[in-house]
Design a protein around this nucleic acid. Structure first.
Lengths: 140, 140
DNA sequence: TAGCTAATTGCAATATTGTTGCATTTATCC
DNA sequence: GGATAAATGCAACAATATTGCAATTAGCTA
């Protein structure tokens, strides 16, 4: 919910501005990775205007607060689901419909971190992206 | 080895040109993610000149042939090590020295793919990046 | 080894994406 | 409602990426 994000925003001393609400709404509704200019266009189509600089700054903030996430493969932004394992982000991206799905699994994370540790690597955070077909697109 | 990559290149019907050798050499020597313009600069410092368009195209080709890989976090390119598990790339990036290390583990891949499958996702390929400290930098 | 040809590169122009400093506006506190 | 710090918009610019076309080159053949 946009309201949840706004509340977190305010709890950290940030203002609940109209541009921030607009960006959060777009991210929430779309559920696909969006570039800053994508977001600008979507809003423009709705008769809303935000300067691209503003959008960049809002996305920076949201990522900092872990309310949004920058996808590695596409560079687009998505709204975070709230249940991620600390220091680990895992996404599935459907090549067909473009939908993304975030998921978290403590076991997978531990397995991977342990593997790295055995190679002498001290893991700070960890990103993982699957590309393929979601259940709906696979059936077709 | 650059020679190995060149051989693969030719086996697929591509020419072993001077620009391609130069880019491969830089990637091999540097062992850190490099942007196209990074590569251009390094070459320039050696008195070699390549147009940036050429470098973009060479990197495209190398990635297609799985001889190079575009890092997710930085967008920079690295030379692939040859032992990656099919459809799965896994890297460790040291936050301190910037070095990257590719590694492969059949077991990890299977675990992750199975996890995705249980969620109804049909995985085509899979990318994973660890960020942290390599063994040498961690000791300090 | 020279000549041929398709592949590759360089160039110029342009498009897209991202950043900075500063004036103006706005959310929040009183 | 007014004060004030935060946030936004604007303009200018920097960096990164793409396209079409002319010039060059690697690798083949004679």
């Amino acid at each position: 919910m946009v309201q949840d994000s706004i509340r977190i925003l305010q709890a950290q001393g940030h203002k609940a501005t109209k541009p921030r609400k607009l960006v959060l709404e777009v991210l929430e509704e779309t559920e696909k990775p969006l570039s800053p200019y994508n977001i600008q266009e979507i809003l423009r189509a709705r008769g809303q205007y935000l300067n691209h600089v503003t959008i960049y700054r809002i996305l920076d903030l949201l990522c900092h607060l872990n309310l949004a996430h920058k996808m590695l493969s596409s560079g687009g932004f998505v709204k975070c689901s709230m249940d991620a394992v600390e220091g680990c982000h895992r996404f599935m991206v459907c090549q067909h419909c473009g939908a993304i799905q975030e998921f978290a699994d403590e076991g997978l994370c531990q397995g991977e971190n342990e593997f790295a540790r055995n190679l002498g690597f001290h893991t700070e955070y960890h990103l993982s992206e699957f590309s393929g077909l979601c259940s709906q697109c696979y059936r077709k």
